[in-house]
Design a protein around this nucleic acid. Structure first.
Lengths: 148, 148
DNA sequence: ATGAGTGCAAATAGTTTGCAAGCTG
DNA sequence: CAGCTTGCAAACTATTTGCACTCAT
């Protein structure tokens, strides 16, 4: 399993303490996100939640809300678009992302402290950082062109 | 100055050796990019080059070409869009980016080697990585809301 | 003279917004 | 019952593509 025990419960508590209202749809989306063992796109999230195409708007608004209260991380893709993933409240981490199938592997390494310190020295405040690694996973590795 | 001496000359040599054709427009765009002491957006590049609005297409195609031959780096913004910056051939680096005015400061720190090694262990190949730090620069720092 | 580069118009992907109606705390 | 949330339609931004024309090598 991807998240430790009590993960979903902690998120629910966190949401309870937040100004967000818990609706059936949000519960549904939260459940799908919690069940995912990978970061997923907004469209995939909508499909897995069994929502009609038009509900993509609600999905985005929900994702924005979850991100705002600090339980969701947005992972930028190389070309365009994002993947989304629940995190422990106010946690965050980095990833290896396959640029073909969008499989993600968590990267256990973060320069947050170091970057924060350097940013402060330069006068930057309210600092956030992004670090993602893109490549081809084993399954998607392109066949090397034969040299003939 | 932002780039070392002979920077533009090295780029021109590199371009010469590349399959790219050097046109007046590309020279112009290269010049503007080389003169910039900041990473800039495609639209700003077009404007500084004195090109009409419709030429944004050419700007994008030129940027893509420069990136392909390894003299240009694309810096993703936090919300959407990118900034572009010339680099020594096949070099790359990371940045602090003001999320208000898009001022960039170079970040002298790169985990390329480490990430490459870890990616290989996970079966990822043809790895590229992105690391950017977003915040408010001194000039753009928002006034703290008065607590009343 | 061949194929890379350009210009115009139009398409695209992903995401956001306005507004009226519905539901939660 | 105030106001957060939703639904639908439409807008939007940054970027890409098709095609005919031009120009660099």
């Amino acid at each position: 399993m991807k998240h430790g025990p009590g993960f979903l419960r902690r998120l629910l508590e966190h949401l309870e303490a937040s100004p967000l209202r818990m609706t059936r749809k949000r519960e549904r989306l939260l459940g799908v996100l919690a069940a995912a063992d990978q970061a997923i796109s907004a469209a995939v999230l909508r499909d897995r939640a069994g929502l009609p195409p038009s509900d993509l708007v609600t999905v985005y608004r929900t994702l924005e809300a979850f991100e705002r209260v600090g339980i969701l991380q947005r992972i930028p893709l190389e070309e365009s678009g994002h993947l989304f993933e629940l995190t422990e409240p106010h946690d965050h981490h980095h990833h290896f992302v396959c640029r073909e199938c969008h499989r993600t592997e968590r990267l256990d390494l973060c320069l947050g402290k170091e970057l924060e310190a350097r940013a402060r020295k330069l006068g930057f405040t309210e600092v956030r950082h992004v670090m993602e690694v893109y490549g081809f996973c084993e399954a998607c590795r392109p066949v090397p062109a034969s040299v003939d």
